[in-house]
Design a protein around this nucleic acid. Structure first.
Length: 682
DNA sequence: GAGTTTGAAACT
DNA sequence: CAGTTTCAAACTC
C-alpha cells in the first residue's frame, strides 16, 4: 500500500525509484508495516537516519551513537559485501528499510541478533538484511547514502556508484546547506567515535595486564564508555536490573581490579562458552564489547544476578545473552555515572579485595592485620590460622569466585570490624569512628539515621569539606611516626628510638592515659609533650618521660607498675581491642609489619608479640610522607605543658626485643606505606 | 544491658 | 582561644 508520506519523501519520482517500488521486496516490505513514515521519524530515535524528515532524526543523540557504535561499527565492514549486493535495493528503499528495521526492532531482532546476522542472514531473510543495513546506516548517522559510501572501504566503490545513481539523486536534491554542514559535523563525530573505539580496544588488554595499578585508567575508560543517553536506562523495562546505587557506587570502581585479576580466566571461559555453537565471534568489536561487558558486570554490585542470568541464557544456547548483559550493564553503569563513586573512600579498598560484596571495613582490617591482596586479588591471611585448609583446596579451587568469596567471608569473620554506634551524629561527625576513618558505615554498625553511606555521598563529601575547612587535618592520621627530626623539635635527643606519637596529643585528666579514653593509649603510643594530659601514666610512654630503656628508673618503675597491676590486663585488652578495631588509617599497616610480628626473633614472647602487633597497628605514618602542611604544623609544636623538654622519649614496653631490627624494618615498611589518601577530589 | 565515666569533637 | 555542650566509646556494675 502506498502511503502519502512516501510520495512526500520522494517527491521527485525517478525511474529508478519507480522501478524499485515495483520490486517484490518493496511490496513485501510495504505490506509489512502500515506505519507511516512521519510517525516513524518521530518515534524512532535511532533508526531514522534515512528519513531526513525531522531535526530530531537528523541529530540523534551522539551518546546513543556511542553505544550503538560499539556494537556496529566493526560489524559494518563485515556486512559490507552483503550490503553491496543489496545496496541498490536498500538505498532506494529507505522507507521500507526503516519500516523493516522498526519491525525488526519490535520483534526483538535488533537486540537479539546483532552478532549473528552475518551467519544467518539467509535464514533471516530480508528482515535481517535490512536490519543490517539499517543498523549500519543508523550508526553512520549522516543519513545520506553519499556519506555512507565515503567509508574507507574500498569495496564500497561500487556502492558509491550505485548510490549516486539512486538515492543520492533524490536526496541530494533535497540536501540543504544545513544538511551538508550537519554531515560534516557528523563526520567529525564519527571520527571521534572511531577514535574512542580504538581507545576502548587498546585499553582492554592493558587494563587486564596492569591489574592493580591500571584500574584507574580502566575506570576512566569505563567512564568514557558510559556516556550513554539516559534513555537507555529504560531500554529494558523488565525492571529486574533496576538497582540502587548504594554500595555499588564504590564497589563499582573498586571491583575493576578484581576483574583484571580474577575474571580474566572466567571471562575467557564464559566467552568461549557463550559462543560455542552459536554466534561466531569473529569481529573484534564484538569481542571488545563483550570484554567491556564482563569488566562492567564484574564491577557491578549485582554481578551475581547478571552473571547468573547470563549463564542461564548461555546454557540455553541463546545467542544474545551478551547483548542483554550489555544493555543491563550500560544501564547500571549509567547509574554509577549519575552517582559517581566515592572514589578514594577507604571503603573502596576492601572492595578491591572483596569483589561484588558490599563495602566492608573488616577486610580493611584484614589488610591491616597483615592480609594483603595476593596476585589474584584475594586477601591472603598471613596467619595461617586464618586461612582454613578447607578454603584453600586445590589451586583450581582457589581460582573459583565462590571459593574466594568463602575465603573472604572467613577472613572477614576472623578479622576485626569497626562498628560505630552513633545515635545523634548521623555518622557525619568525627564522633563517628567510621566517618573519621574515611569509611562508610556498613551493616555491622548500629548507628541510627546514618548518613555515612554511599547513597548520601554528597552529604558526606560536603560534611567532610566543612570539617576540613575547620581543621584541615581532621581526617589526617592522628598518630604520626615521629622520627628524630620530630623528636628534635620536641627537644629530645636523637638517640631516642623513633616511635609513633599522637599528632595532637591527648587531654586526659582522669584516666591517667591508662585507658582507652586516651587516644594516645588507644593508639598504643606514648604521650608526647604535645599532650596536655594530667597525671600521665601512659604505659607506652609518659609525657614527662617514662623510658623503659632503663635510664629513668622512676618512669620505668611507674610503667612497670602499670604493666603489672593494670597494664597486664590493659595491654592484653589493648591487643585484643586493636585486633578487633579498625584504626583510622588501616592502610598504613603493611603485611611486613605482620611478618615482623611473626618472625621468631620478634615473636619469642607474648609481650613482644603483643607489642609488635600493637606497633603494627599504629596509625603511624612516616614523617617523610607526612604532608608538608602536617609537618609545618607538627614540627614546631611547642608543648603547652610544663613538662621538661629534655624528657627522654619513651619506648613502648618490651621494645628491647629486636629493637634495632624492628626499627629498621619498620622504617622500611612505613616508607612503603602510601600517604593518607585525600578524600576530596582535587 | 543499663548506667556511668571519659575525653574528643563541636559549638558558642 | 577558652569555656561549654554534645557525643559516642570505654568502662563499670
Amino acid at each position: 500500500m502506498d502511503t502519502p508520506h512516501k510520495t512526500q519523501i520522494t517527491p521527485t519520482p525517478t525511474s529508478s525509484l519507480s522501478k524499485f517500488e515495483d520490486s517484490p521486496v518493496f511490496k513485501y516490505i510495504d505490506s509489512l508495516s502500515p506505519i507511516e513514515q512521519a510517525k516513524s521519524s518521530q518515534t524512532d530515535n535511532c533508526f531514522n537516519s534515512l528519513a531526513f524528515l525531522s531535526p530530531s532524526s537528523l541529530f540523534p543523540s551522539p551518546q546513543i551513537n556511542c553505544h550503538r557504535e560499539s556494537r556496529f561499527s566493526v560489524k559494518r565492514h563485515h556486512f559490507s559485501a552483503d550490503l553491496n549486493t543489496r545496496v541498490l535495493q536498500s538505498s532506494n528503499e529507505s522507507n521500507a528499510g526503516q519500516e523493516a528495521s522498526k519491525a525488526v526492532e519490535q520483534s526483538g531482532l535488533y537486540d537479539e541478533h546483532p552478532g549473528c546476522l552475518s551467519n544467518d542472514s539467509s535464514s533471516k531473510g530480508i528482515s535481517s538484511d535490512l536490519f543490517d543495513k539499517q543498523s549500519d546506516l543508523a550508526v553512520e548517522l549522516p543519513g545520506t547514502s553519499n556519506y555512507d559510501c565515503r567509508s574507507p572501504e574500498d569495496n564500497l566503490e561500487a556502492c558509491d556508484a550505485l548510490m549516486k545513481k539512486t538515492s543520492l539523486e533524490v536526496v541530494e536534491q533535497e540536501r540543504s546547506p544545513f544538511q551538508r554542514s550537519r554531515d560534516e559535523w557528523k563526520e567529525r563525530q564519527r571520527s571521534f567515535e572511531n577514535e574512542r573505539d580504538l581507545r576502548k580496544i587498546r585499553r582492554i588488554k592493558p587494563s587486564e595486564e596492569a591489574a592493580g595499578c591500571g584500574w584507574v585508567a580502566v575506570v576512566s575508560d569505563v567512564a568514557d564508555m558510559l556516556t550513554v543517553n539516559t534513555s537507555i536506562i529504560h531500554e529494558n523495562s523488565d525492571g529486574q536490573d533496576q538497582r540502587t546505587v548504594d554500595s555499588g557506587t564504590t564497589s563499582f570502581i573498586s571491583n575493576i581490579p578484581e576483574f583484571s585479576l580474577d575474571n580474566a580466566n572466567n571471562l575467557e571461559h564464559a566467552e568461549s562458552g557463550d559462543h560455542q555453537g552459536s554466534c561466531k565471534q569473529n569481529e573484534l568489536g564484538e569481542s571488545v564489547t563483550d570484554q567491556i561487558s564482563c569488566i562492567l558486570s564484574t564491577c557491578l554490585p549485582d554481578k551475581p544476578v547478571v552473571t547468573d542470568s547470563s549463564l542461564k541464557k548461555d546454557d540455553k544456547g541463546e545467542k544474545c545473552s551478551q547483548l542483554s548483559r550489555q544493555r543491563s550493564i550500560r544501564r547500571r553503569c549509567l547509574v554509577f555515572e549519575k552517582s559517581p563513586g566515592f572514589g578514594l573512600h577507604l571503603n573502596s579498598l576492601p572492595n578491591i579485595l572483596k569483589g561484588q560484596n558490599p563495602p566492608n571495613k573488616s577486610i580493611l582490617s584484614s589488610m591491616k592485620m597483615g592480609e594483603v591482596p595476593s596476585d589474584n586479588g584475594t586477601a591472603v591471611a598471613e596467619n595461617s590460622s586464618e586461612a582454613p585448609a578447607s578454603v584453600g583446596g586445590t589451586d583450581a579451587d582457589h581460582n573459583t569466585p565462590e571459593k574466594k568469596r568463602q575465603k573472604f567471608e572467613l577472613v572477614e569473620e576472623s578479622a576485626s570490624c569497626k562498628r560505630c554506634n552513633c545515635k545523634r551524629s548521623k555518622c557525619l561527625k568525627l564522633y563517628c569512628d567510621c566517618f573519621a576513618a574515611g569509611l562508610y558505615c556498613i551493616e555491622p554498625c548500629s548507628c541510627l539515621d546514618c548518613f555515612n553511606k554511599p547513597i548520601h555521598e554528597k552529604m558526606v563529601l560536603e560534611t567532610r569539606k566543612q570539617i576540613e575547612s575547620r581543621n584541615p587535618q581532621a581526617f589526617a592520621p592522628k598518630v604520626i611516626r615521629s622520627t628524630e627530626s620530630v623528636l628534635d623539635s620536641w627537644g629530645e635527643n636523637n638517640k631516642t628510638p623513633a616511635s609513633a606519637r599522637h599528632k595532637r596529643g591527648c587531654n586526659c585528666r582522669k584516666s591517667s592515659c591508662l585507658k582507652k579514653y586516651c587516644e594516645c593509649f588507644q593508639a598504643g603510643v606514648g604521650c608526647s609533650p604535645s599532650c596536655r594530659c594530667e597525671g600521665c601514666k601512659n604505659s607506652f610512654g609518659r609525657k614527662d618521660g617514662c623510658d623503659e630503656s632503663g635510664s629513668d628508673g622512676e618512669g620505668l618503675e611507674a610503667c612497670e607498675k602499670n604493666a603489672s597491676d593494670k597494664n597486664s590486663h590493659d595491654i592484653v585488652t589493648h591487643k585484643n581491642a586493636e585486633e578487633h578495631q579498625d584504626l583510622p588509617v588501616a592502610s598504613n599497616i603493611s603485611r611486613s609489619s605482620s611478618q615482623l610480628c611473626n618472625t621468631p626473633e620478634h615473636g619469642s614472647s607474648e609481650s613482644s608479640l603483643c607489642q609488635s602487633k600493637f606497633n603494627s597497628n599504629l596509625q603511624a605514618i612516616p614523617e617523610d610522607e607526612t604532608p608538608k602542611v602536617l609537618k609545618h604544623k607538627c614540627l614546631p609544636l611547642v608543648p603547652k605543658t610544663n613538662s621538661p623538654p629534655n624528657s627522654k622519649r619513651v619506648s613502648p614496653p618490651h621494645h628491647d626485643c629486636s629493637s634495632s631490627t624492628a626499627q629498621r624494618s619498620r622504617k622500611l615498611i612505613l616508607k612503603s606505606i602510601p600517604s593518607f589518601p585525600s578524600f576530596c577530589p582535587p
